[in-house]
């Protein structure tokens, strides 16, 4: 008979290489990133009446070979942050320094070179692949556009190689997306991202739409690829269990602000910010005895609208520890322990 928790804590494979290619060299750093979307009114003459502060002053850096987790609930700005890095949105303010160069505001032509190095894997494998293109075309098109491999046969070979790397058979080359399951489509999305030999991949909820058994396969694939090609990931997800498993460091966002950033185990074992604590408390753990012993303190209220966010610290209306001064200004993001950053005055 096994006790609580022992079932899933079985050591299945040697995992001493987990930190893999993690180095001290900074690959990308994001400074003071702001993305405010205008809200307009009027039919013929559009007036800007407000703005949605999707991202409102975010700073972080990612080391080469590292996986940084970006977590938070819907509307916290985690996806927008990823899109800003890719320059799919034009940020309102801030710097995105990739390999020592600020890529924010580069023109489209200059971005073409950068995009080879930064790729993205999207959440929904059903809508992120063109339904009218065969898998082969999906994989070879970026190679052709970026002129990486000039002859057709070379591209074909490379595409087949990518399919194999991602655990798909070579005959998938001739298939259409509708002929595949969700997990297989997600593997094609990953193969497409790898086609450019990128250094940095933004995984935007890359495993969220998959069933648990398939999800575990894709998580393992992402980890294998990270080790094999020395990749760096920004892993955007709302699933905290997956984030704890795959990430080296984790950042928590709430309503456009980063509220906490720390090493993975430190963040999950010693969360400091009241929002992080509430978030971790809310996640149910697959262990009945443990669950029955938990307090289940739920935080009240809903996430406010980013058009009209609360003054000062955006979390104060729901915060169990809020004091009067929390309404006045957003607290400084400070380092309370080595490598553990928190934006809260009351801790």
């Amino acid at each position: 008979m096994t006790g609580p928790g022992e079932v899933s804590s079985v050591v299945v494979r040697d995992d001493s290489q987990f930190r893999g290619s993690y180095t001290d060299e900074t690959l990308i750093s994001v400074k003071g990133l702001k993305m405010h979307f205008p809200v307009t009114e009027g039919v013929f003459v559009q007036r800007v009446v407000a703005s949605v502060k999707a991202v409102d002053g975010v700073n972080f850096e990612i080391k080469k070979g590292e996986t940084l987790g970006l977590v938070g609930e819907s509307g916290c700005g985690k996806t927008t942050t990823g899109r800003c890095i890719l320059q799919l949105e034009k940020p309102t303010a801030g710097e995105i320094i990739f390999h020592g160069e600020d890529i924010n505001g580069l023109d489209d032509k200059a971005m073409i070179e950068i995009r080879k190095k930064i790729q993205v894997i999207f959440q929904d494998p059903f809508s992120s692949l063109n339904p009218r293109m065969k898998v082969g075309e999906i994989l070879t098109e970026p190679m052709q556009v970026h002129n990486i491999i000039s002859d057709e046969e070379g591209r074909r070979q490379r595409a087949v190689e990518l399919l194999t790397t991602c655990g798909l058979k070579a005959n998938f080359y001739e298939r259409y997306p509708h002929e595949m399951s969700g997990g297989q489509r997600q593997r094609v999305g990953i193969a497409r991202a790898l086609a450019m030999n990128p250094e940095f991949i933004i995984c935007d909820e890359a495993v969220s739409a998959l069933d648990v058994s398939i999800q575990a396969q894709v998580i393992n694939l992402l980890e294998d690829l990270r080790d094999q090609f020395g990749l760096t990931y920004l892993f955007i997800s709302h699933d905290l269990s997956v984030v704890r498993h795959i990430c080296h460091r984790v950042a928590v966002m709430y309503l456009g602000h980063m509220v906490e950033l720390a090493d993975c185990d430190e963040l999950f074992d010693n969360p400091i910010h009241p929002y992080t604590q509430a978030l971790l408390e809310a996640v149910p753990i697959p262990d009945p005895d443990l669950e029955h012993g938990r307090a289940h303190k739920v935080i009240t209220g809903e996430i406010p609208s980013p058009i009209n966010p609360p003054s000062g610290c955006v979390f104060h209306p729901r915060c169990p520890r809020a004091v009067g001064s929390c309404k006045d200004s957003f607290p400084e993001f400070r380092e309370v322990k080595p490598g553990h950053w928190v934006a809260c005055t009351e801790v």
């Binding site: 928790g5 079932v7 899933s8 804590s9 079985v10 050591v11 299945v12 494979r13 040697d14 995992d15 987990f18 399951s181 997990g183 297989q184 069933d211 648990v212 058994s213 398939i214 999800q215 575990a216 396969q217 998580i219 393992n220 980890e223 905290l240 269990s241 997956v242 704890r244 498993h245 795959i246 993975c264 185990d265 999950f268 074992d269 971790l280 996640v283 753990i285 697959p286 262990d287 443990l290």
Partner: peptide, 26 residues
């Protein structure tokens, strides 16, 4: 059932090993 339980990462424990997923498709 065993495979399903082993496929989900645990949020309350440090990472110990790679996941052990069920291979193949439903």
């Amino acid at each position: 059932t065993l495979a399903l339980l082993r496929s989900v990462p645990r949020m309350d424990q440090p990472r110990q090993a790679k996941l052990d997923p069920v291979q193949g498709q439903p």
